[in-house]
Amino acid sequence: MTASPRVTLSRRRFLSLTGALAAGGLALGATGLWPRWALAEPALARRLLRLGRDIYPHESIEDRYYLASLSPLLEEQRDAVATGLDDLDRRARAAHGSDYAGIEDDAEREVLLQEIQHTPFFAQVKGNLLMGIYNNPDLWPLFGYGGSSWEQGGYRHRGFDATPDWL
């Protein structure tokens, strides 16, 4: 049995999908698909984006998916989120003399996050992103995950027993 086309989704294909998505995003304007709260408070949105992209850094995923994941949290607990970000910035300035988002070295930002990874703030941001990024059917093709399959009759006749050519 032959593999279906998606079987061959490679790193290169992953990145080319990235390009396609980024181009689409640019055509709509960088913030065109941002949620309402993010358009209203773009500075807050950008600080959260830096944090979100450090928690789950996927170059190929557009900003709007990170922001949309956090919409429920922003709607319910905007002040707690702002306080959490302020705390992170304070730590960043103490350690590096710059706001968190201004630190250029990925590893230095990651060390700062390790300091706050046991806080409820971090857990809430991470928990919302976990669902918004990895439990989001729109993004599953980027990861090569097929999602629900019963509507297509499963994989019984769609290559479940394809022989890997690399073994």
């Binding site: 928690i55 996927h58 996050l113 991470k126």
Partner: peptide, 16 residues
């Protein structure tokens, strides 16, 4: 709640 994030984690997920 405190685990499973960062660059190594994201790389692994991209290898799903």
């Amino acid at each position: 709640a405190a685990n499973g994030w960062g660059r190594q984690f994201a790389r692994s997920m991209e290898n799903y």
